[in-house]
Structures are given as structure tokens and as C-alpha cells.
Design a protein around this nucleic acid. Structure first.
Length: 596
RNA sequence: GGACCCAUAGCUCAACUGGAUAGAGCAGCUGCCUUCUAAGCAGCAGGUUGCAGGUUCGAGUCCUGCUGGGUUCGCCA
């Protein structure tokens, strides 16, 4: 049995059959949401397309005549209330009240409020997060985490098998920096005694704060001090060659960092199935390199081992993939290639998505081409979903007033503070227990933050403005929560009053408009997941909240003068809106409090 | 210099495969709380879609050129 169709699809089916019957291509009957909702909720532009097709065949025709024939043929169709021809041949389509009413009942009865499941499920890996060992999370990590998490949930809800991997940066020069800087601070630690190979302490010699201090200290010194840089390079090479003390230290660094990161991502309601990193694929590298050499796709160049990935059509050749530096060290390309191999072996995914800053587009293009050359994947199986940077008001990447990076932790507490100030200003502060208050401020803060980010199109840069992030009115996360909370409040009151939900019977325009908005859920989900574009889902949930707010203002539900059947119908509508709204928000990674 | 991205209302952003009068929010102005949470609702105002051409019934969207901004270009990750 197939899923019941949306109103739009049902109307499209009627129009398509009609176009076909009149000798035109069926897809001319495609119906879409109208650009002129004041005239009709739906429109069909196929008459123009049909006329265009005839013209190509050398036949003259008038799109308005074609439209008129379609309208005449559909006379009396029970799903259609009214058809009108406008302009050069647009057909405005108004669905019949019976159709809308029937569909409202279907949506209310459906656990997924109209959301379909994909017919062929894929195994998809999403590589997002992008945090590094030893570096505290800052606003630069926000977009990847928030967008990646939403895409993961969205694709899963559509029916795919999705594996999220944080893919930590834990294998580069930064590790050498940390090791050498720690050695300068605490030279007596056993990890630095090259004679020792075992029995290192179980407890980490450093905390997250230590790491956060050590790395920039070393990095700054190395910028001007060549000898200092060389020590870090050597330590990195020795680590990669397997020096036991360094490996033991690395394990501590990773462990300490993951614990901190789980907390940081947890505060954002972001979690990963895999906490793998670059170090995890290190054991694969020697055999991988041998394999690539055996395929004769590598070459030596200036002492480095490379894979050329240029293509004929390029005016200027894309730079090669660097497998081994002339020093013999493993590079970013190498670990990312090894990760692709690891995923092939362990998960054999159909698709791998990288939610990473757009600035790394070239890097991924290189690595993907190498993986294709190696015969591991088809090019279409790997996609870099870049996103623009978060800029300050001056148009350059965001910095705090004193020029530093804004820690994610600090941003979140700013959000919470703003939320809590807002509750106080409402005079609601004493209505909630301390526990509930803290839950509300968390949720409002996260909703504001995530929605502000996700509603932007992925690729473009956007301006980070704390004033705007902590705005709680208009097209914001808290507005959406507010709509959901108002419904919850009504449903509580209905329960207390012993009023039950009942069959849907629409009467007011605000009700019809609300049902039409709900019925667009599946389209929004399909478009958002096909294009990997959460902002499309943001647009939908916002429309739902808006439609509900109008309904709320126009259509009393529990008031004494409301007829029992009307009240029951509106309760069903309200429940359905809440279910879809909460589901949509969950797919954006946004949780809803009970009250606010 | 090569490659990629972007330019839409005062500000921040939308616009599905090329469709009618380019939409939201904020800021501004008018109304609406003795009735389900006013973090709300209704309304007004705001535009030569960076510039110049081209393709066609029809262009913010496609093509060419230009201007202005951003990113990136083998041994950092």
C-alpha cells in the first residue's frame, strides 16, 4: 500500500492525467505552491510548457487555449474547488474543502504527520564536528557541529542508515608541539625517558586546561624560533614512528580531550556514533602506501611521495596529494585517505559527507580524486558539504573585542544569560523551580543559537552578531519554542477540563491555511535532505509556527462559547501541529521545554 | 596570475526545474491583552536583485564581459 498523497500531489495527479489525455506530456500537470497565495494556494504552469513543446515541433498554439481545455476537462472534479486561468496561461488551483478536510484527518492519524520514508536506504557516513585534541571548542566549531548534527538526524529520519564521526584532529604537528612543551614544563615525567617503554601512569599528567595552555604556547614560540619548530617536528615524527612514551602521552591527550569535547558537544545536543580520529587510522598507513605504490599511481617528487590528481581539462593542474613529506612524515592528505580506506573496510558506505569549512574544498577535491584513482570509491560517493565562515561585523572571521576567539562555552553562557534575563523580564522567574528554570534557559539558548545558524543557506558566509543571536522575537528559535509551548499549555488545560480531541472539521480560513502548511512537511524534508540544506526545514517549521500563531489568535479552542465538536477538531489540529513542530525541531537538533 | 564562492529592502537573510505583483525577520509607523502564555496577532511603509549586454512568450535564477568583496593555490591541520 502506498502512502496517502499530499494535497499538492493529488492535485498534480489530476492535472497530469488531464494533460496526458489532451496529448501533452504528463509532467506538464505538475502542481506547485502558488507564488500568489492571495489568488489560490496552488498553481500549474504546464500550459506554457506544453505550448513550448508544440512550438518546437512546428505547431502553433496558445497556452491560454491549452489551459482552457484543461480547465474544461476538469470541470466537476471532486478534489478541485476552482480553477482559474491567469496571465499567459497560469492555472490557479483551489482544492476542495472535502479534500483538505480528508487530508487533515490523515495527517492527524499519521505518526509521522505526512513524512514519507525513502525507498532505497543508503549507508551514509557524516564526518562533522572537526574538533581538535587539545584545543577548546570555539565559535568556529559551531557551524560544522550544528549543520552536521541536523543533516544526520534528517537523513536518518528519511530512512537512511547514518553514522556520525567526529574525526578528531589528533595526529599532526600539534601533537609534537604539545609533547615538547610538556617536556619543557615537566621534564621528569616518565614519558620522556626514551629508555622506558612500558608501565606509564594511568592518570593523565595534564588537564584540558593544561592542554589549552600548552598548545598555543608552543605554537607561538615555533613561529619565530626555528629550532623550537624543529623539536616539534622531530617529536611528531617520533610519535608517528611509535615512540612508546609519546604514544602513551597521546592516549592521555585524546582521552582528556574527548571527555571535554563530549561535554561541549553535549551542551549543544550534538553527539557522534564514532569518536575516531586521525591517530586511529595510523596503523593502516604503511600498507596503504605500499598498495598505492603497487598500483603505480604514486611518484616521488622533491623527496616527497605524491599522487598526481590533475585532470586534462584544467588550465592549471590541481596540486598533487602529498602522501609523505620529504621528512617521511605523514600529512593531512595521508590520514584523510587512510580514513576513506578505513571506512571502506569497516562500513562500506554508499556515501560519505564531509561537513567542513568551505576553505578546505581543494583539500577534499584532491583526496577524493586520489581515492577514485585508487579504485576505492566512485567520485559521487564522496561529497564535501562546505559552509561559509562566521564573520564579524567587519566582514572578516569573527573575533572577540580583544582579538581572541570566542569560546563555545562562553557563547553558550551568554545565550543562557540572555534567556534567563528574558524570563525575569516577563516576570515568570518565580513560576518555575530552579531545575525547570535551568532546563528552560538551556533549551531557549540552544534553540536561539542553532536556529540563527541553520536558517542561513549553508554555503554563504554570514555575520555573527551577538545581538541578533540573543534576539528572541520574530524568526528565531525561541519563537518556535513559544508556539510549541502554547500548544502544550492548551493540551494540559484540555486534559484538566476533560475535553477530548475529535474528528477534524475545518471551518475557518486559518484552519485550512494551517492544514496546507502541515501538508508541506514531506516536501520540505525531501528538499532539505536532497540538497543537504537544513535551512529549508527551518523555513518550514517557521511557517508552521506562524500558521499556528494565526490559528491561535483567530480560533479559540477551549473558550466556553466554542461548540464541543469544533473544540474537539481544533484540539486534534493543535496536537498534530505540536507533533510535527517538535519533530521538525528535533531534526534541527532543537529540544522543546514544557513551559517557558 | 589560476581555481572556487558571493553581491537581493536601512540591517540580517529567503526565493523549489527559468514563471504572475521578488518574500520573511529586525529596525520605523498604526491598531490589539477583564477570554487558551503579548517571546504573540493584524496592518502600513520600505526594491532599477552590483553594472552592461545576450538567450526567450518570460531572467534574481541560464550565457558572456565588467566592477566590488571573500577564500584558496605540494611538504600546517
Amino acid at each position: 500500500m502506498s502512502d496517502p498523497l499530499s494535497i499538492l500531489d493529488q492535485l498534480g495527479a489530476e492535472l497530469s492525467a488531464c494533460f496526458k489525455q489532451l496529448g501533452h506530456a504528463p509532467d506538464c500537470g505538475a502542481v506547485r505552491e502558488s507564488d500568489r497565495p492571495d489568488l489560490a494556494p496552488f498553481q500549474c504552469n504546464g500550459a506554457m510548457a506544453a505550448a513550448g513543446a508544440l512550438k518546437k515541433k512546428g505547431e502553433k498554439s496558445n497556452p491560454r487555449d491549452i489551459a482552457a481545455a484543461v480547465v474544461a476537462a476538469l470541470e466537476g472534479n471532486s478534489k478541485i474547488e476552482r480553477l482559474e486561468i491567469a496571465g499567459p496561461g497560469f492555472i490557479n488551483v483551489v482544492p476542495s474543502p472535502a479534500l483538505v478536510n480528508l487530508r487533515a484527518g490523515e495527517l492527524a492519524a499519521d505518526a509521522r504527520t505526512g513524512a514519507s520514508l525513502i525507498s532505497s536506504a543508503k549507508t551514509i557516513v557524516i564526518d562533522y564536528g572537526g574538533a581538535n585534541v587539545a584545543k577548546p571548542m570555539h565559535v568556529g566549531h559551531l557551524r560544522s557541529a550544528v549543520i552536521g548534527e541536523s543533516l544526520k538526524r534528517l537523513l536518518r529520519y528519511r530512512g537512511h542508515t547514518v553514522i556520525g564521526d567526529v574525526h578528531l584532529g589528533d595526529w599532526g604537528l600539534q601533537m609534537g608541539h604539545l609533547i615538547t612543551e610538556l617536556e619543557d614544563e615537566q621534564p621528569s615525567l616518565p614519558y620522556f625517558d626514551a629508555a622506558l617503554t612500558d608501565n606509564y601512569p594511568e592518570d593523565s599528567p595534564v588537564t584540558m586546561d593544561d592542554l589549552a595552555r600548552l598548545y598555543p604556547a608552543a605554537s607561538n614560540k615555533a613561529k619565530t624560533d626555528k629550532a623550537r619548530m624543529e623539536r616539534s617536528r622531530i617529536a611528531t615524527a617520533q610519535l608517528q614512528q611509535g615512540r612508546a612514551g609519546y604514544r602513551a602521552l597521546l592516549a592521555h591527550f585524546i582521552d582528556v580531550s574527548i571527555r571535554a569535547l563530549k561535554k561541549g558537544y553535549g551542551a549543544l545536543d550534538v553527539d557522534f556514533d564514532l569518536w575516531k580520529g586521525e591517530a586511529a587510522v595510523d596503523p593502516l598507513i604503511p600498507a596503504m602506501i605500499e598498495g598505492l605504490k603497487a598500483q603505480a599511481i604514486t611518484e616521488e617528487d622533491d623527496g616527497a611521495l605524491i599522487i598526481r590528481v590533475g585532470e586534462e581539462s584544467e588550465k592549471k593542474e590541481t596540486p598533487p596529494v602529498m602522501l609523505l613529506a620529504s621528512s617521511g612524515a605523514v600529512l593531512y592528505h595521508t590520514t584523510d585517505l587512510a580514513t576513506l580506506l578505513d571506512r571502506k573496510n569497516e562500513l562500506n558506505p554508499d556515501l560519505i559527507l564531509y561537513v567542513v569549512d568551505q576553505r578546505q574544498a581543494l583539500h577534499f577535491e584532491q583526496v577524493f580524486r586520489a581515492a577514485v584513482k585508487a579504485g576505492w570509491y566512485e567520485r559521487e560517493q564522496m561529497q564535501h558539504l562546505g559552509f561559509g565562515t562566521m564573520n564579524g561585523k567587519d566582514g572578516t572571521p569573527f573575533k572577540t573585542r580583544d582579538g581572541g576567539v570566542l569560546r563555545l562555552e562562553d557563547l553558550l553562557s551568554m545565550m543562557r544569560e540572555a534567556a534567563s534575563a528574558r524570563i525575569a523580564a516577563q516576570g515568570m522567574g518565580d513560576k518555575f523551580s530552579a531545575e525547570e528554570l535551568s532546563d528552560i534557559t538551556d533549551k531557549v539558548g540552544v534553540a536561539a543559537l542553532k536556529f540563527a545558524d541553520l536558517q542561513n543557506q549553508r554555503m554563504t558566509n554570514y555575520i555573527f552578531d551577538i545581538e541578533r543571536f540573543t534576539a528572541f522575537e520574530g524568526k528565531t528559535g525561541p519563537y518556535l519554542l513559544y508556539a510549541a509551548v502554547r500548544i502544550k499549555s492548551i493540551l494540559r488545560k484540555a486534559r484538566e477540563a476533560g475535553k477530548a480531541a475529535g474528528p477534524v472539521a475545518l471551518s475557518e480560513p486559518a484552519e485550512t491555511q494551517l492544514v496546507l502548511a502541515l501538508d508541506a512537511f514531506d516536501r520540505a524534508l525531501m528538499a532539505a535532505s536532497d540538497k543537504y540544506a537544513p535551512h529549508i526545514l527551518c523555513e518550514h517549521v517557521y511557517r508552521i509556527a506562524q500558521s499556528f500563531s494565526r490559528f491561535y489568535a483567530d480560533c479559540p479552542i477551549l473558550a466556553d462559547n466554542v461548540d464541543e465538536a469544533v473544540s474537539a477538531s481544533r484540539l486534534t489540529l493543535a496536537q498534530t501541529v505540536l507533533r510535527q513542530l517538535e519533530q521538525g525541531l528535533e531534526l534541527l537538533g532543537i529540544g522543546v521545554p514544557d513551559r517557558m
